[in-house]
Computed example of a mutant assay.
Amino acid sequence: MTRKPDGPLRKGWTTGACATAATRAAWQAILSGAFPDPVGITLPRGETPQFALVKKETGPGWARASIIKDAGDDPDVTHQAEIIATVRQASTGAGISFHAGAGVGTITKPGLPLPVGEPAINPKPREMMTVQILELAAEFGVRPDVEIEISIPGGAEIAQKTWNPRLGIIGGLSVLGTTGVVIPFSCSAWIHSIHRGVDVARATGRHHVAGATGKTSESAIKAIYGLPDEALLDMGDFVGGMLKYLRRNPVPNVTIAGGFGKLVKLAQGHLDLHSSRSQVDMEKLAHTAAAIGADTALCDAIRTANTARHVLELCAAQSVDIGNIIARQARETAMATIDGACAIEIVIFDRQGGMVGRAGRLETPSSP
């Protein structure tokens, strides 16, 4: 995860906001013969941004406009992407329809907010674009019968850096944004992807899902259970966000996999495991070690250890099984958070993918 810079951060605009503004510009060009540039829209919470246009193209019954996305200071993979809206007049009574152009994905798995086969243009951006079409149609006295195609050059390549392929969104990016505003380092897109991952797992009948803090632990737990991609949740540091959503939308069996340092934090009651928002309490860790037989010298060494990884090495050298006790404590935190909605297992791995702690071992869940 990119480190949050110091000082005030600049907000940005979502892909959905850019698509909405480009759609308004193209539709207005069809109706009036001229593109508004810059084009202004009103977002759901009242913000009124202005967007400069890049493309301004017209033909018989159609117009195309594009905007370069500015995500502000957020480390958004779609920052500086070109968001293109092509609006075409449709037959009378056709209404408003949405289409995926190049670089915008198509939904291929159930459980997402739109049906299988639909372009990955989320409901709120669709609503925002619809408002613009209806507003201008009323102003010019015409019927709102249009086709809206959104495309993002290079979107298929950018999408490989997102969770879209795992969620069954194939061929490109999603057009997202419930408010139209990107709050830097809010991690809302990450948490959103965790929620959608749970939804897809439930919709595809999965009985077992796993959330991992990183790639090593994800690969290791996938190998243990033979889990398919749709059963793997991109939890990262957001174990609390995953567990709280699972509490409301349960899957019978849940494995939390991670490195020792991250899961020590969970054992100590933290639900956000990022280094900027939680720290390992070495004093507590020393008390935990003492409770399972660590001598005074080892406990003193733990208190002054540089890292949790160092603690694990110190304990291993003296055959003090701290991994399993941390796994049990982490499971207690997780169980309290999920409030009995799911069976919980904790598995701790070292940096090489070797298991160093486990609690709440699941009977190998039956497929799927």
Rank of each mutant, 00 (worst) to 15 (best):
Gly214Gln: 10
Arg206Ser: 15
Leu176Thr: 07
Ile224Asn: 01
Val175Ser: 05
Ala189Glu: 07
Tyr225Asn: 05
Trp190Gly: 09
Tyr225Gln: 04
Val209Asp: 06
Thr179Gly: 02
Pro165Glu: 14
Pro165Gly: 15
Asp199Phe: 02
Thr178Met: 09
Ala203Thr: 03
His208Thr: 03
Arg196Val: 00
Gly226Asp: 05
Trp190Asp: 09
Thr204Tyr: 12
Arg196Gln: 11
Ala159Asp: 14
Gln160Phe: 06
Ala210Arg: 02
Pro184Gly: 07
Ser186Thr: 07
Gly211Val: 02
Arg202Pro: 01
Gly172Asn: 04
Ser188Gln: 12
Val209Ala: 08
Ile170Lys: 10
Leu176Cys: 09
Thr216Ile: 15
Gly168Leu: 08
Glu230Ala: 05
Gly205Trp: 08
Thr216Tyr: 13
Gly211Cys: 02
Pro228Lys: 05
Lys215Cys: 00
Gly180His: 03
Ile183Tyr: 04
Ile191Trp: 00
Leu232Ala: 03
Asp229Val: 14
Asn164Gly: 10
Ile170Cys: 02
Pro165Met: 15
Phe185Lys: 00
Leu167Pro: 06
Gly180Ala: 03
Gly197Phe: 00
Ile170Met: 11
Ile221His: 10
Leu227Glu: 00
Asp229Leu: 13
Ala189Arg: 06
Thr213Asn: 10
Trp190Leu: 15
Lys161His: 12
Pro165Gln: 14
Val198Ser: 07
Lys222His: 05
Pro165Ile: 15
Thr179Ile: 02
Ile158Tyr: 06
Gly214Cys: 09
Ala189Pro: 10
Ile194Asn: 09
Tyr225Ile: 09
